[in-house]
Nucleic acid binder design. Sequence first.
DNA 1: TTGTACGCGTTATCAG
DNA 2: CTGATAACGCGTACAA
Lengths: 334, 334
Amino acid sequence: MTGAQRPTLEAVARLAGVSRATVSRVVNGSTTVAEPIQEAVRRAVAELGYVPNLAARTLVTQRTDSIALVMPEEATRVFSDDQVFPGIIRGAAQELEAADKQLVLMLAGSPAGHERVERYTSGRHVDGVLFASLHGADPLPGRLARLGIPVVCSGRPLDGADVPYVDVDHIGGVTRAVRHLIEQGRRRIATIAGPQDMVAGIERLAGYRDTVAAAGLPELVVTGDFTRESGGAAMRRLLAVHPDVDAVFAASDLMAHAALRTLRESGRRVPDDVAVIGFDDIETAAYTEPPLTTVRQPIQELGREMTRMLLRMAAGERVDPLLLPTELIIRQSA
Amino acid sequence: MTGAQRPTLEAVARLAGVSRATVSRVVNGSTTVAEPIQEAVRRAVAELGYVPNLAARTLVTQRTDSIALVMPEEATRVFSDDQVFPGIIRGAAQELEAADKQLVLMLAGSPAGHERVERYTSGRHVDGVLFASLHGADPLPGRLARLGIPVVCSGRPLDGADVPYVDVDHIGGVTRAVRHLIEQGRRRIATIAGPQDMVAGIERLAGYRDTVAAAGLPELVVTGDFTRESGGAAMRRLLAVHPDVDAVFAASDLMAHAALRTLRESGRRVPDDVAVIGFDDIETAAYTEPPLTTVRQPIQELGREMTRMLLRMAAGERVDPLLLPTELIIRQSA
DNA sequence: TTGTACGCGTTATCAG
DNA sequence: CTGATAACGCGTACAA
């Protein structure tokens, strides 16, 4: 059973005693076909088990009715428990559901994978491409855009390509967070920064720097990569160098979570001795010990807005970058 | 800039002063083209920014060089922290990497999504389809198989369709787990079963039933859906009805984890008062309090084997269902 | 080694 | 309202 020669439009037409064109019309729901003929065609379709060949259709319509969401990450990182990717995916899925388009997810963690994704998307296998979380100056979004393929990134592309993007207001969120610490009288405010090859990491650090500098406070910076492990290690380094720190802004909740634990292990009380603020507002933030004060970013909304932007582009509209608001959620850690 | 008329093989041929056929040969790496001509063609390709149209290529080659991994779940569940889906994805990705094929992930949580996935896959948009975690008697795998599309499921399809599958040895694993409990002298052995619309749920319960029955022990069954929340609730119901339970086999580590917590809250010591065994061996199983004894399933291996099986099918080979071994990992909870 | 010509399965245009 | 017929962009026998 190697495929049993799939039935084509031609076969259906013969069986129904009509032309290919008519079958095509029925299949695509045109109303200009006489009822009895529609009926005959439908029977033939059912009897033969006809299914339209998408490649052939795409070739003439120039559409695939599917869009790609590319995650330039390894599977393990995509599926970590910060729910950032899942949030974007859900947002995109919702919006595409309404547009009746298929979402195809692609991982591009390895160099080979990255290259394969490029072939796939630039070969017009999808009507548009969404990029979640770019690393470094990835040239792919820019290249696809130059090919005339609609592209939207989450966050401003670091290679300076003129590609539309949606992002959350990192700077605004961090600024509010650090000010909150300052208003509490904290004076030795450190940050556990995120990876500096990602916009989110860069901007959150910039927001911290500007705000402490404006207040005439010193910069205390250690760096992690958004994961729990890196957060714990960073916090230990911080304590070793600056044992007198009285507040920490961590660029992700995962890192903040680890920091909480490290601080406790070092005998410090949160928030009494050291205040901690995270970023993301992941689900577990409300259940940490103590509950985590954090900057909430509307991650699902991000996925939805990226998708809407992409659909508008695919429809030929011009679009502008969009910044989504963030919000300081005050719990007990600061 | 609405697409700027993408260059075709024809355009490249004109610019290079050769025929379309020759360009096609160069693009596809045929060695039978004179070096200087290859060079000229390559220059023309670069200058025009030519990228092959995949739809056209597919139409003639009847291949897409991509395969789908369908997850009939909502995004939230796929991205939960049991790492089952990520494991399958990683396994599949590894194996496809070697075959230089593109992996496309599709979620089919909603009915509409399910239908869209059907259109997409049955329209020959991919060379084959992998199904992870089927619910109930999903007819899709069987239908695709009947269309001659290579399909592999994780776990025997519940609708009885004759579709090749790979699964782990649930029964063997559970049997060893329950026997381990019996050998410790446990006599009131309960189970927190998984959802009964999934093979994994069904078989793990069957394994429990057979083993306790063979030992002449009573069946104590409560049911969850593999999630932590459901596990905690199930454990509470269990304690209410059978306060004298002295061992629990939970059909997932997530549920076992919640059971551990619930037992502690009820004042019972694990394993002294109640022994607990889980299933999966997720990463956190080693870090629970106390560390969780559990049945390890080679989940990444599952993804790899499914993929290898699919590739063999696509190559025209016949394949047989495959069962991967499970292993009892003894830690401290039992 | 290179070119010619046909076909892959659809949709769209245009007569009728 | 229906049916020819021409694209769509590419790979590949076959011929030269």
